[in-house]
Each structure stands twice: as structure tokens, then as C-alpha cells.
């Protein structure tokens, strides 16, 4: 019997690989479909593919005939690649998150007037889940929306709002910040739409006057900045994240 009295829990952060039940075992599970008919040849194709992806000992644990010459696989393999975790840098929204009450108090003490935030799901996107979760009183997962925040006036324009309309409304209300929600990402329509918004804001000379934020399940802060937004919020963000960012930034930029 091998001598192993303690588990190996030390990680070399410069060479990180997947963990199954033993450090550095590289265990990964994968599911995918190949456009080949079900059978031994299909299983072999899946095995070879996973091996090419850098996994040793690929094992097809399940395959299923989906008909019409398509086969579904569940494959395990031991990943041989490693990642240097110690050098990773990810762009993040750098503001301290305040709770709802703290936000209200912060505005009172540092801004001294109501903060106006306007949001919409733009373009042809019909999903309101995201914008509703941030703005509507009820919020999401027990996190109240901006409508419940003190010293915040928020307007939810709903879905399928043209960028032009959102900008016109923001102008009319002298908004401090605009929130753009995007859920549909098929064929990168969200990129087109978000880019158009920035261009219109610039053309209107508003880009430097209002904070421009976007959000959605496939939005990251990095993507948002790349597109010319001040910040981007992905999943697991709530009204307090958005509000904290806006009010902190307003103070920082002297827009009070």
C-alpha cells in the first residue's frame, strides 16, 4: 500500500489544473454532440477529440443516438494543460458596495439631491427580467430594486426601446445615469446595439454628461469598457451594486 497519510492540499498557483478528487488529477467532464451516426466509431471519434483537446485517458461514459446521424456524448478526461493563476488580471467595477440604506445616506451627505437613473432594454430585445430586477421595487432574490432606494428617482422604460428614445428621455429628465439591459446575444446583436447607443450618446454630446452602464447575463465589465461604457454588470448583481457604483462615480467625477 502506498504511503499517504495526509491529502495533498497544496496548490501551485502558477500551474493550476482541474480538480476531481485528488490534487492535479485534471479531471474534467464534457458533454457534446457530434454529427456522426451512433456506434463504436462515434465513441472513438469523441474519445479522439477529447484527447486532442489536451485530456489524457479520455473515457466515453455515455453516448446516445439522437437520430438523423447525430450522437450525444458524456466524456471524462484528465486535462494536461495548466494555467498560471498568479498572473491573472480581470477588469472589475471598482467601487465599494453599499447597502440600500447606506446608498440613501451617501446621496444625502455627498450629493444633496435626488439621483436620476433611467433604464431600458433596448433594440428588439423583449426581455425585461434584467432591467426589472435592478429597477422595479420588488427587485430580485430579496434585493430590492432602485425604486425602493431613498433619494433615487428611477424610471424603467421597459423593453424594445429604441436607443434614440432612451436618450431623448434621459435628456428630458437630466438623468445622471442610463442603464441599458441586453439579454438576447444571438449573432452578437447586443454588441451592435450597445455600440450604436454609445455612438448616439457621443453624437448628442451627452457621453461626458451621464454615466452609461450596461447589464445582462452575458455582459462583463471588461466588455462594457471595451464598448465605451463606464461599467458593465453581469449576473448576480443587484440594485445596490449598480447604485453604489453610480453614486460613488458621481462624487468622484464631481457631478453633484
Amino acid at each position: 500500500m502506498a504511503k499517504c497519510e495526509t491529502a495533498n492540499t497544496s496548490v501551485d498557483l502558477t500551474k493550476v489544473k482541474p480538480y476531481g478528487d485528488t490534487m492535479n488529477d485534471g479531471q474534467m467532464e464534457m458533454t457534446f454532440t457530434l454529427p456522426v451516426p451512433y456506434g463504436d466509431e462515434a465513441d472513438e471519434a469523441a474519445r479522439q477529440l477529447v484527447k486532442k483537446m489536451g485530456c489524457e485517458e479520455p473515457s466515453v461514459v455515455y453516448s446516445h443516438d439522437m437520430g438523423g446521424g447525430y450522437t450525444f456524448f458524456v466524456v471524462y478526461g484528465k486535462c494536461q494543460h495548466t494555467i498560471d493563476y498568479s498572473t491573472i488580471h480581470v477588469a472589475k467595477v471598482e467601487s465599494e458596495v453599499m447597502e440600500r440604506d447606506e446608498c440613501g445616506k451617501f446621496i444625502e451627505e455627498n450629493i444633496g439631491r435626488d439621483v436620476i437613473i433611467i433604464g431600458a432594454t433596448t433594440g428588439f430585445d423583449a426581455h425585461t427580467v434584467g432591467i426589472d430586477a435592478i429597477i422595479n421595487m420588488k427587485g430580485f432574490h430579496g434585493h430590492f430594486g432602485l425604486e425602493r432606494f431613498k433619494n433615487v428617482i428611477s424610471i424603467n422604460m421597459g423593453s424594445q426601446v429604441p436607443n434614440e428614445e432612451l436618450i431623448a428621455k434621459a435628456k428630458e429628465l437630466h438623468a445622471d445615469a442610463i442603464l441599458v439591459s441586453q439579454t438576447v446575444t444571438q449573432k452578437d446583436i447586443h454588441i451592435q446595439n450597445l455600440t450604436e447607443m454609445v455612438e448616439l450618446m457621443e453624437a448628442e454630446g451627452l457621453r461626458d454628461k451621464m454615466l452609461l452602464l450596461c447589464g445582462g447575463p452575458r455582459i462583463s465589465h471588461e466588455l462594457a469598457q471595451e464598448l465605451g461604457y463606464d461599467a458593465g454588470f453581469g449576473s448576480d448583481t443587484y440594485a445596490e451594486h449598480v447604485c453604489s457604483y453610480i453614486i460613488t462615480e458621481m462624487v468622484k467625477r464631481g457631478r453633484i
Binding site: G67, G68, Y70, A126
Partner: peptide, 21 residues
Amino acid sequence: EAAGRQGADIIAVIRTTAQSL
């Protein structure tokens, strides 16, 4: 076709998001 072979009884073809307008 694949869904039919897998046992689907009803296939809904989703419209592009803009069509309703």
C-alpha cells in the same frame, strides 16, 4: 427533425424578437 425523432409532440418555431411590432 431531430426533436421529432427524440419524441417531441409539438414543435414551436420561435419568431425573431422584432416581428410582433
